[in-house]
Every structure is written in C-alpha cells, then in structure tokens.
Amino acid sequence: MLNIKHLRKIFNPGTPNETMAIYDLNLHLKPGDFVTLIGGNGAGKSTLLNCIAGVYPPSAGVITINDNDVTFKPEHKRANYLGRVFQDPMLGTAGNMSIAENLAMAARRGKSRGLGWGISKEEFDQYKEYVSRLDLGLENRMSVKVRLLSGGQRQALTLLMATLQRPDLLLLDEHTAALDPRTADKVLYVTRRLVKENNLTTMMITHNMRQAIEFGNRLIMMNHGRIVLDIEGEDKKGLEVNDLLKRFAAASGEEFDSDRALLSM
C-alpha cells in the first residue's frame, strides 16, 4: 500500500539552521493497517506525514502509494490518495464557507472540477444525513459558516470530509490534541467508526501513550528522525505503558522525554 524507502528530510540545508528531521526511514504499510505513531517533540512525526502528503519534497528517498511513485508529485495530485486531518482545527476547513459547501468540496477530491453547480440538492440532503450521524447536532446548521463552529465540531467535520471520498490512506496528525478531553473522546469515537466502516488504512500521530496502545493494529515509535520501535499484532495487544517505556529505552538508549506524553497518561 504505502512504501517508503530511505526517506530523508533536511530542513534549511547548508545553513546554520540545518535540521535533519528524518534521517533514513523505511516503512511499509499493508492495506487495512491502522498505525499509531508516537514519539517525543521534534521526533519527525509531522515531517513524515507531510512528506507523504507532499507538503514539501523529501531530501532523499522514494515514496510509493499503491505502486505509484509519488515522491515528486505535487500536493494537490497526491490528494487523490489521501485524506488528512490536521492538529489545528482551523486548517481542515474553509471558515467562510458553509458546512454543506465544505463537504461538497471534499466530495470532489480526486475528481475534475468544472462549471457544474458546486453543490446539488441531492448532495445537500445526503450530507445532512452523514452529518447527523456525527451526533453533534450540526445537521440543522448545514448552511452555517464553519468559522462559527467549535474546534471539536470542526475536527469532526474535517474527519467526515477526509473520508467522504474513500481515501487509500488516512493521515491524522494529533487531530484531537487541541480539544478538551470530552470532545477529544467524541472525535476519537468518530475516527474509529469511520476507519472501521470504510476499512481505511490509517496513520495516526498521538501524544497519548494509552491511545497509541489502544488504537490500531500497529504502533510505531520515532526518535530523532528514526523509527525505533515497530510493534504489531499479538505483540501490541498485551502492551502496557510501562513495557513501552522500557522497550523505548532499550531500543534508543534514552529515556522517553516527552513531558506531554507522560502527563497525558
């Protein structure tokens, strides 16, 4: 499905600000994999997802999605394969457009856009039905501008938008980190449901170790631009937070240093 070979990303090469965000990363995802990605601040998790999404080109390496080499494909072309939700609730939606218009734009991901009407009546009714299943009471506010919604509502909407056209790969970058715990739970619940219903291949970055263990069939831990742990299947099922910390220390030769992650256990 997703195949990453010898990925490297250097920011500001040749300057005093040079940062090696990803050193030499190899990763293969099978269809239907749900990977949780965890690691300290600056480990390179967001950079990895952004390289997959084509936000910036890699400094070295090859990325293929479904056997298509996308390494140098621009962001908007890779969008055919990808659904994305960002950490910042502002980033996933267009605030000055209505809920229905946002969904209509998302429904056209990977399709060519012409002079047809931006949203039809049938679409509107269908989106209303999808939105009602989010259980946030938004179905009666379909024509409301998205900027008037709360962060949690916007994230749930972004999730729905990301999966409206079934993506080959769903990328979630700490998409609940900006939300209060109850709203975060609700958005996580929606995440789980949408991933299951559509049988999506998913990568989810999180700072919460419990979440990383609880969700998905595979857990990857990153440190200084490398994958240090990759735990799958049965091995992952019995995992405890303490085991994870020990295995991280053994594999990387360091203590796990993310205050945020430890606090949010």
Partner: peptide
C-alpha cells in the same frame, strides 16, 4: 467554489486536490 476556498484556506484546498 474552489477559488473562494483558496482565499479562505489554501492548504485545505490543496489537500482536497485543487
């Protein structure tokens, strides 16, 4: 719609394939 959304949130518009 894509033009209007570009003024609003260009990174979202790219993520939606435009």
């Amino acid at each position: 719609c894509a033009i209007r959304a570009t003024g609003d949130n260009p990174s979202m518009v790219r993520a939606l394939g435009v």
